[in-house]
Computed example of a mutant assay.
Amino acid sequence: MQDLKGKKALVTGGSRGLGKAIAIALAKEGVDVAITGRNKKTLEETVIELTAFGVNATYSIFNVADKVEVKMQIQRLIETFGAFDILINNAGIAAFGGFLEMEENDWEDIVKTNLFGPYYVSKSVVPSMIELGSGDIINVSST
């Protein structure tokens, strides 16, 4: 396995659930980690946990479904934290119910977050990976 120590990773949806577990696993390997999400309290708590592994960690609050916000916040992260070697597109939402019962706005939010979100984030991160000459992107999805 490749040594990850000293690499920089961005994990969207990184303050809870699977995203948090991924961020912690990366930190345990010596990876500096930036996490994103929409809840300041859980982001701050997770960053404290990550730094306990002796790595640099930070967070940014934004909605991956908002193209303008993504571009602005990713640029800010790259300027302050450095270019990312690893991108984990993990942020996602779900709504439950039958097709006929689901509100159109709920469906639109799911598509924007789960489909466009990884596209917007990747499009904002990939240019810096090209400058580095390498990078890995992992897209997470579930039912």
Rank of each mutant, 00 (worst) to 15 (best):
residue 141 S to R: 09
residue 5 K to I: 04
residue 102 M to S: 13
residue 56 N to W: 06
residue 120 Y to L: 10
residue 84 F to R: 02
residue 55 V to I: 10
residue 50 L to P: 02
residue 140 V to K: 02
residue 59 Y to C: 08
residue 85 D to E: 11
residue 3 D to T: 13
residue 46 T to E: 02
residue 2 Q to D: 13
residue 37 G to V: 02
residue 62 F to V: 03
residue 42 T to N: 03
residue 31 V to F: 02
residue 30 G to T: 07
residue 112 K to Y: 09
residue 137 I to P: 09
residue 42 T to Q: 00
residue 94 A to W: 15
residue 6 G to A: 10
residue 36 T to W: 06
residue 122 S to Q: 11
residue 2 Q to W: 08
residue 118 P to I: 08
residue 10 L to S: 04
residue 9 A to D: 07
residue 76 R to T: 13
residue 134 S to W: 11
residue 48 I to T: 10
residue 53 F to M: 05
residue 2 Q to E: 11
residue 125 V to S: 01
residue 61 I to W: 01
residue 68 V to P: 07
residue 103 E to K: 15
residue 29 E to D: 07
residue 97 G to T: 03
residue 23 A to W: 00
residue 25 A to S: 14
residue 46 T to H: 01
residue 57 A to W: 04
residue 108 E to P: 09
residue 95 A to Y: 10
residue 106 D to M: 13
residue 16 R to F: 00
residue 18 L to T: 08
residue 132 L to N: 10
residue 21 A to V: 04
residue 62 F to C: 05
residue 21 A to H: 05
residue 86 I to Y: 04
residue 21 A to M: 11
residue 2 Q to K: 13
residue 141 S to T: 11
residue 9 A to Y: 05
residue 108 E to M: 08
residue 11 V to C: 07
residue 128 S to H: 14
residue 90 N to M: 05
residue 6 G to P: 07
residue 139 N to K: 12
residue 24 I to G: 03
residue 32 D to E: 15
residue 45 E to I: 00
residue 118 P to H: 10
residue 140 V to R: 03
residue 95 A to E: 12
residue 117 G to S: 13
residue 134 S to I: 07
residue 37 G to E: 03
residue 78 I to F: 04
residue 94 A to H: 14
residue 91 A to Q: 05
residue 49 E to C: 03
residue 62 F to K: 04
residue 83 A to S: 15
residue 13 G to W: 01
residue 109 D to N: 14
residue 9 A to W: 04
residue 99 F to L: 10
residue 16 R to L: 05
residue 140 V to F: 12
residue 73 Q to N: 14
residue 51 T to K: 15
residue 53 F to S: 00
residue 87 L to F: 10
residue 137 I to N: 06
residue 23 A to Y: 01
residue 46 T to K: 00
residue 128 S to C: 06
residue 59 Y to N: 05
residue 123 K to E: 09
residue 60 S to L: 06
residue 90 N to I: 04
residue 52 A to H: 09
residue 81 F to S: 05
residue 107 W to N: 13
residue 77 L to G: 00
